[in-house]
């Protein structure tokens, strides 16, 4: 990790994007005060955390990438345990938990032991537990990993319309659509450093005059196909190229693909997303973390 400073206030949602090993989770875990930052004092809410660590922690809601619960207790009992630990009164926590269980579609299983929950349900329960005490800083590491599309939509809705409008949310995801929908600010990370930061609109503007062409193939060309004015990224099942919005280079690209012996099964032309902007600005790819899109 290099010297890093993130600024966010109430209502802001900062999304960290970067490939595996870029430092997203490490940054989140240190922000959540789970890891000891060795290079100097970690300052959150304007104060070094060691000045009042327990008070800082009460203002934070953290959901790591692996949901951990007491399997023999029900979902509601687990959630109540954490609201108890955060110091909430049962009468105050009850309605909040009921509401969050409803938002995340867990109401029907709230009295079922967590040991029989699926991974996605455990992730949702962890989100409930992280949000229930109305923290000032919400830290979520890959919150949608393992969630089905409907749960993903519910998560986006909860982020955009939840009761935590006075909270600052910092989350890590490599899901371009999710980042575009929820972020007020997107941070690109590579090798433990922040490379670029900006709003989704500002970042997407970098590729405003380009179209994203995805060509689904059988077989692989094995190396990047370079054309004049077009750089295509080759994956096991598809080739992705950015080109001017008139896509005049598409026939040439398709001819080249056919020439190397690949069979084209589908061509999709879309607007570039944040993953494409990440590739443009950092020279690396998010693809090893690429996730299925909501609704696909």
């Amino acid at each position: 990790m290099q010297d890093i400073s993130l600024e966010g206030g109430p209502g802001e949602r900062i999304v960290l994007m970067g490939p595996n090993g870029s430092g997203k989770s490490t940054l989140l875990r240190s922000l959540a005060t789970e890891l000891l930052y060795p290079k100097g004092p970690l300052v959150i809410f304007g104060q070094p955390i060691f000045r009042n660590l327990q008070e800082v922690r009460r203002k934070i809601g953290f959901a790591g990438d692996h949901p951990i619960h007491l399997p023999s207790l029900t979902g509601m009992e687990n959630a109540q345990l954490f609201t108890d630990l955060y110091g909430l009164e049962r009468k105050d926590a009850g309605p909040v938990l009921e509401n969050l269980f409803a938002i995340f579609g867990l109401s029907k299983v709230k009295d079922v032991p967590v040991g029989s929950y699926s991974h996605g349900m455990k992730k949702k329960l962890q989100l409930v537990e992280s949000l229930a005490h109305n923290p000032k800083l919400i830290i979520l590491d890959e919150p949608t990993l393992g969630l089905d599309p409907s749960a993903l939509e519910a998560f986006v809705d909860s982020m955009n319309h939840n009761q935590n409008q006075d909270s600052c949310i910092v989350l890590a995801t490599n899901h371009p659509e999710l980042a575009t929908k929820v972020a007020t600010s997107v941070v690109f990370m590579v090798d433990g450093a922040i490379v670029v930061q900006g709003s989704p609109a500002e970042l997407l503007q970098r590729l405003d005059n380009e179209a994203k062409v995805e060509i689904w193939t059988s077989g692989t060309a094995g190396e990047d196909i370079v054309l004049e004015g077009i750089r295509a990224r080759v994956f096991s099942d598809r080739i992705i190229a950015n080109m001017p919005t008139d896509v005049a280079g598409l026939p040439i690209l398709m001819e080249k693909i056919l020439d190397v012996g690949l069979v084209i099964s589908k061509v999709e032309i879309t607007r570039p997303d944040l993953a494409d902007v990440f590739g443009l600005l950092t020279g690396t790819s998010l693809e090893n973390d690429h996730l299925p899109r909501a609704g696909s």
Binding site: T33, Q54, V56, R57, I60, I68, F82, L85, Y86
Partner: peptide
């Protein structure tokens, strides 16, 4: 080992 203890501590409990 499971990380549950760390989760408890992260709630700000002494």
């Amino acid at each position: 080992e499971s990380g549950l203890l760390q989760r408890y501590v992260m709630t700000g409990l002494n």
